[in-house]
Design a protein around this nucleic acid. Sequence first.
DNA 1: GAAAGAACTTACTCGGAGTAAGTTACTCGG
DNA 2: CCGAGTAACTTACTCCGAGTAAGTTCTTTC
Lengths: 223, 223
Amino acid sequence: MTSTTPSTQTDEPAGGVVKRRRDRAAREREILEAAERIFGERGYQGTSMDDVAAQVGVSKPLIYQYYGSKDGLFLACLARLRTQLLDTVSDAVLAAPDAEDALYAGFVAWFEFLDDHPQAWSVLIDEGMLGMSPAAGPAAQATDEVRAAFIDLIATMVRMNLPPGRTPDEDEIQIVAQSISGATERLAIWRSRTPTPPSPQKVARTLQTLLWQGLNPLRTPTT
Amino acid sequence: MTSTTPSTQTDEPAGGVVKRRRDRAAREREILEAAERIFGERGYQGTSMDDVAAQVGVSKPLIYQYYGSKDGLFLACLARLRTQLLDTVSDAVLAAPDAEDALYAGFVAWFEFLDDHPQAWSVLIDEGMLGMSPAAGPAAQATDEVRAAFIDLIATMVRMNLPPGRTPDEDEIQIVAQSISGATERLAIWRSRTPTPPSPQKVARTLQTLLWQGLNPLRTPTT
DNA sequence: GAAAGAACTTACTCGGAGTAAGTTACTCGG
DNA sequence: CCGAGTAACTTACTCCGAGTAAGTTCTTTC
């Protein structure tokens, strides 16, 4: 009765009504894209596996077969974004001629990436994996790893710019790196919630000035 | 059969076996204490209402009658902590003779409070209410309000210390305030997860120096 | 010592994560 | 062309946690 033209099935579904079977890789990609979108829109908690399944037009157990669990699916989304974001920022930093420029370039790259990938950002920090206690799921761990990678990057930058004579105080370096990471994260959240946020360049510039010269510039008439 | 001595019931339960009825206020307090502890240990998601009920030795619907919902219970925990934390930090800031000292004093108060109330901190930020999307529950909103109060405090401090001639650039003030808030939050999380973190004083000092003078001090042989 | 009301419970519904076991479509050797 | 084998997929559950309806004690008060 419902026999429709079988369609080629090797590519995108034809304009027909039913989606037929796809091979595993294609289906996985399809699921991942839907998941990234829905997680981005509704957050981790707000997304049910049935939602994703319905969106793809597939049944829930299939997703479990491919991704194991909700965390597994979320982690898969994260992996892509993590790589992209880290690469983007590292590239910008490494291309800069000196530390002062690297700081600015890194910030600009960070904020621009997040502007260009709004739901990526939601996936990365939404549902507030930020402060989760150790007992939280593997998803929290994964976001923590992304963060740790950035903190390492920052700490390395700081270390590289210590003068030769200076004994590196690892505590101080950690404090500074954690601070910068925290500041950029909060700024990103703030920008994403402000109707017309300042441009990446403006934010990066202000932050760079703050970090490089401290609060004093704000206290003198000349910027 | 199970009739035990009725016990006085006006105070803590006697050494007896069964807890009898208490009046509402007492029970509410008892529930709140248990909730604060369990939320602190296992986070919001990790805590079930049945857990809390079992801990208090009471049935779940009673908690719902008193607190309405899981969010309601969580919010009640938050309210106390929020007030305490805000007051502690504001007092320290206001008692300082000038802006530079206020910055330091505020940081010290913040980190010391969190050292003294470890599970308070967990309640405040655990379960990562930090980055939740707008669609997240009222609990996320409440933590956001705590944060907003701090950001206001910081922004006010910054504004008060602008020289008379300087036109306040609200964007820049926001950027700075958000940064500081983000930095202190991340430092708090970091300290809570580091086995032997640097003292509140050391962290506060480093952060104050960073903000006041920028990264330059790290680049010169003299601290 | 009963009426009234506060304190409290049993026994559910409902939704979402995760699973067991089966069914359908494609493919490849004969 | 045709069955066997297997990959793709589904129906129909279980289980657990939030939230609720409808009572059942205890305790106070006249």
